[in-house]
Amino acid sequence: MTPYAWTWIAIVAAGLLAWLIKLAGHVVPERVVENPRVHRIAAYVTVALLISLAAVQTFTSDAALVVDARVVAIAVAAILLWRRAPFIVVVAASAAVAAGLRALGWG
């Protein structure tokens, strides 16, 4: 099978799994998921996954650690988030910073 076909299979699988998890929450008896440990683990796994995705997206290229325009861009994003800027502004500003630095010939 081609990589394109595999991507389609992955999309359908991810969609089905996402829906089944959502559905499960509505139909399982409450006591099954009341366990505070399960709840805490789910919450911290979300934090760990999202920050890891941010880190890998920002500091790596083709399995190598790299420092380039993306690092400045995410620093700007962090400052904007700290200043409570809306999500879309944060994303757009970080793209603009990276694009600007590259236009100037760095990173």
């Binding site: 934090v47 500003a93 793209a95 603009a96 694009a99």
Partner: peptide
């Protein structure tokens, strides 16, 4: 267009 940097910022915004 800095879209690779925007992806990192998007994850940071979500977390």
């Amino acid at each position: 267009w800095g879209l690779d940097a925007a992806a990192g910022a998007a994850f940071l915004g979500l977390v």
